[in-house]
Design a protein around this nucleic acid. Structure first.
Lengths: 174, 174
DNA sequence: CAAGATTGACACTTCAATCTTG
DNA sequence: CAAGATTGAAGTGTCAATCTTG
């Protein structure tokens, strides 16, 4: 491992340490929401009511929408977890906390009695609407505002390559 | 916020989600250590016995070593926390868990009775020695191996710019 | 009082085990 | 039995309060 490689890894780890904390801090201070709260709110709305492609503010699992997702109006917990790249357990617990705060509701799914659908409550929708500009401003301040457009393009490419992972890199071999 | 900016943010958030999980998984499977375990072991050794400059495998807080660090042979908890960019509380709890597993020991500091020094136990040293090659291999697989040298250089620059943050970007204005 | 460090309460996350329905 | 989802136990992390020593 060359010094350059070590340096890159350390730089990545450091940014991961500080950048998320800054945005989470802005969000928490401005709205009382945590990042996981915001991610779930945004993902539920996006799945229930698909936006223009490419306009997700939240992390997107490399796996596309799952086969049986039945994305229209019926947001299954597993579909949501898969789309977000979260474990079911993680999402289940997060939904529990958010249900206590009345930001989401779980209603029994009519098409499959084994589980529930997730819905935004009115309070959840309001919280999301209020949080979006805060997140956008914070990302602008701490992320996009710190980089040139060229750097943003390069970073996107780099992140995509890393996300793809070693398995999917067989042939292209660098 | 342009589509390009949103895309970059989403790509970053996704990579943060999957990359750390992959390395943590390799480390856990190969050694039974968690990433925080490894980070603390490596940071304690690095502070107690400073290595060649630039060869930190663990995240490095932008703040340099603190004034009263007394880095030689006497690793104060606060100095360790500052150097790692961790809160004292976080480090205190992590040290508690690692002390239970006998990877570190807290001994009362002779020069200042208010606190303890942290030391690696023999088991801790062995664990660190065993873990280092595992981490290096994993980073090679999931990180450096996925990128060209040019990309690694660009990424380092980008991360450094992000870490610096908006406060320290006053004059250079882009 | 100020600094070093820990603790209580709570939020977040994972793994394996569990319960329920198809 | 297989899939959807939750839960128990333990690790991880934060904030504010606390305790102790300088």
């Amino acid at each position: 491992m060359t010094a350059q490689h070590q340096q890159a890894w350390a730089a990545y780890r450091t940014v991961r340490l500080v950048l998320d904390a800054r945005v989470a801090r802005d969000l928490e201070a401005g709205t009382g929401l945590s990042m996981p709260d915001f991610d779930v709110l945004a993902a539920v709305r996006a799945l229930a009511d698909p936006p223009a492609p490419g306009s997700w503010l939240v992390p997107l699992s490399p796996t596309g929408p799952r086969p049986g997702a039945r994305t229209a109006h019926c947001v299954r917990v597993a579909a949501l977890a898969d789309r977000m790249g979260w474990s079911r357990s993680r999402l289940s617990r997060q939904l529990g906390r958010m249900e206590r705060r009345s930001h989401v509701a779980r209603v029994p799914c009519e098409l499959d009695g084994r589980g529930d659908d997730v819905e935004l409550t009115d309070a959840g929708r309001r919280a999301l609407d209020g949080a979006e500009p805060v997140v956008i401003a914070s990302v602008q301040t701490h992320f996009t505002g710190a980089l040139t457009d060229a750097q943003l393009g390069a970073l996107t490419e780099i992140c995509d390559a890393l996300t793809r992972g070693p398995e999917e890199r067989g042939a292209e071999e660098r």
